[in-house]
Design a protein around this nucleic acid. Structure first.
Lengths: 259, 259
DNA sequence: GCAAGGCATGAATCTACAT
DNA sequence: GATGTAGATTCATGCCTTG
């Protein structure tokens, strides 16, 4: 398994995870498909006439909840296998999928430590005035079973970061990934539809891992988890299904500078 | 069914809901048992040595997740039946139970409008430094199926309340229920372990109902939903299993003053 | 060089009405 | 009922252009 460390494996996450040993990972961060189920062909427009480009990629398409649940259970079972007994498992999602993911995790025996609210300070407003503005995503932080002991939680460090007060599950306030941080293709269009902000994943790693730990991301996309791990001195392994994202992630890793 | 309006039915919520007609309720607010699964006999203490009294009541005890899920499915099925086609269904929960509740709702066909974060401004700090401070609860706001149309959402009113800007799913910031609002027994001990703040339920009713609407609460406890409905000119029906809470709620309803 | 203003854009489960 | 088309409508941020 050593040869996998600090690499991105190109392939299907469930298949490729089988290459990873039991009880070998300190922290898993997973950003799975959300199964948005958007109406077909309809596009919302801003006041200036510009179109909102929704997430409409094939990797987010499933036949049904049952199909999504099977997929979800299969990748999470593998995560549970490879996670160390004192490791922790993080998943991010929204109301479309996070309740399904959470119940499946509990049914598999994961024990929840917190559900953390990432408050997005510059999210898309609600364009039709029929709902509350969707301004957050939810992270579940868990251990692999109820009896897990000795997981890493850098309480004092977080308290210090938070101005001397305990860090709360509602203190995760970050902007979206945009500007220079957001990877663009040759046409200046966003390279990945849902690139997560580096700060968010750094916060995850700073909260629940130490230098030298091995971090795993089954849906690594353009490599944000790898970049965060590299900056913070953690080792990492990622899996990504789409070759173009693998290439982009390696390019990013080879060129990024620590500011 | 008319005789039930503005009354609390004493009994088991699943049985008693059968008295309520199909498609008759405008808004349901439900605060079900959270199934906390606290360790037995252990009591956390504050710095001054005083004990934290946890939720340790029989109504929150279940044999297993399966048992909890069956209970959950049964009461939610009845809610779906009695909800008007354009009515909305609200449930509040925490990470212990809300993921299970949410998945069961989706499986029954409910369509989510938002998940709303109630940020508690004076929550209990984390006493052992092993987790993030638990500072929120989650409300799911939904319609009874994907094709439901014409639900009430008082967008303009909420925008006005929010200083001219759209209300967000993270703008629900209220203190816990305490002080004069918190009902006490003859010994000065909190009468109900999980009494919700009036403001929270008022916000629900102001957001998604109109004067004269019929509000239903299957777990009405000490009657906060009834009080909020009465203040805001809505009709209401509640169910409560424990006689002592029914009595307390009626006493409260007969004496409260609108300030 | 600096300040002010323009402009682009974000995991989006849209609604109402006509045919 | 199902399907198709028109309609109404947003906020915070960061980068870039203009003055």
């Amino acid at each position: 398994m050593k040869e996998l460390i600090n690499t991105i494996i190109h392939g299907d996450c469930i298949q490729e995870m089988k290459k990873i040993s039991d009880n070998s990972i300190d922290l898993i961060f997973a950003d799975p498909p959300y199964y948005l189920q958007l109406p077909k062909g309809k596009r919302l427009k801003r006041a200036d006439g510009s179109e909102i480009i929704p997430v409409d990629d094939n990797w987010d398409k499933f036949k049904s909840y049952e199909d999504y649940d099977n997929f979800t259970k299969n990748w999470i079972v593998e995560c549970q296998r490879i996670l160390k007994p004192n490791g922790t498992f993080w998943v991010i999602g929204m109301y479309h999928n996070i309740f399904r993911v959470g119940k499946i995790m509990q049914d598999l025996g994961f024990w929840f430590l917190n559900d953390i609210i990432w408050i997005k300070i510059d999210a898309l407003p609600n364009l039709n005035g029929r709902r509350f503005t969707n301004n957050h995503e939810t992270l579940i932080w868990s251990v692999k079973d109820k009896n897990s002991k000795g997981y890493t939680f850098n309480y004092d460090f977080l308290k210090q970061m938070n101005g001397g007060k305990q860090m709360k599950d509602t203190d995760w306030i970050f902007g979206l990934c945009k500007g220079h941080e957001r990877l663009k293709d040759q046409n200046g269009i966003k390279a990945h539809p849902t690139q997560k902000p580096l700060k968010l994943i750094q916060q995850v790693l700073l909260s629940a891992s130490n230098k030298g730990d091995l971090i795993f991301d089954p849906f690594i996309g353009t490599g944000t988890t790898a970049v965060a791990a590299k900056i913070l001195g953690r080792n990492w392994i990622g899996i990504e299904k789409e070759k173009k994202y693998v290439d982009l992630a390696y390019k990013r890793l080879s060129t990024f500078l620590i500011k």
